[in-house]
């Protein structure tokens, strides 16, 4: 089963008002993080972070709210917050 299909199984209400995730500064991603393989683009369980030519795109509406990106970014360059109350994932089983 593809990850995209798995993400459809997750009950979620994305916050239309905006993203709870952001790359603080594009410089480390372009520069020194390339050599490290830009870890957020590999370890994120929902593959929210994707390298697109010259920057990382953030598909926040797929976020599963594990907050690993905040801890795993080698440059502490991801501003990862929790979605506003009532938004984001709502587990059926958990």
């Amino acid at each position: 089963m593809k990850l995209e299909d798995k993400l459809y199984t997750v009950g979620s209400k994305p916050d239309e008002a905006g993203s709870h995730l952001a790359i603080k500064d594009p410089a480390p991603c372009l520069g020194p993080c390339e050599a490290l393989g830009r870890p957020c683009t590999t370890f994120c369980p929902a593959r929210v972070y994707v390298w697109a030519t010259d920057r990382i795109t953030v598909a926040y509406s797929n976020c599963l709210e594990c907050t690993a990106c905040r801890t795993g970014c080698p440059f502490a360059n991801i501003d990862c917050r929790l979605p506003r109350g009532g938004f984001g994932v709502a587990h059926k089983y958990g």
Binding site: L7, V10, A46, L64, T71, H91, K92, Y93, G94
Partner: peptide, 9 residues
């Protein structure tokens, strides 16, 4: 049948 996929730290 996969009913739900979740992630947690």
């Amino acid at each position: 049948v996969v009913r739900e996929y979740v992630a947690h730290m």
